[in-house]
Amino acid sequence: MGLILCATRGGEASRRTRDKAIELAKERGDELVFLYVVDMSFMDKTAAPVVVDAGSGVERMGGFLLAMAQEHAREKGLEAQVVIREGKTREEIKAAAKELEVDTVVLGLPAEGGVFPEEGILAFVREVEEETGAEVFLV
């Protein structure tokens, strides 16, 4: 039984990605892990006073989004696990894939709301495949 890692946030783009991951997991009989990365890099370009732990709020929101993904998977007859990591999105996806020794990584293609700029996604796919040995599905 293999392991599928699906990086997800919320929104329409992630919904398609999640559905594909669930479909793959059911087809193959693999286990499924949803991953949310708490990436606060958007705060870097403002000097606005940040005197609260904004990351905690994002982490809780991420937990909520993962809970939604889990419920969605359950409705489709699949029990999924969830993982939250903190850091830069790409690095944490690769790190999670390595640590969990996943067989497949499911990523969303750039769209409105996509995490990656289009020109970077193919390079990232190659990086993941080379560094983790996992197969990558772009949705």
Partner: peptide
Amino acid sequence: SAPNIVTAGMADRAGYHLS
């Protein structure tokens, strides 16, 4: 304004890109 930017960033973290 800074509140606009940080909120857009937060929304993006939830998969909703505020263009």
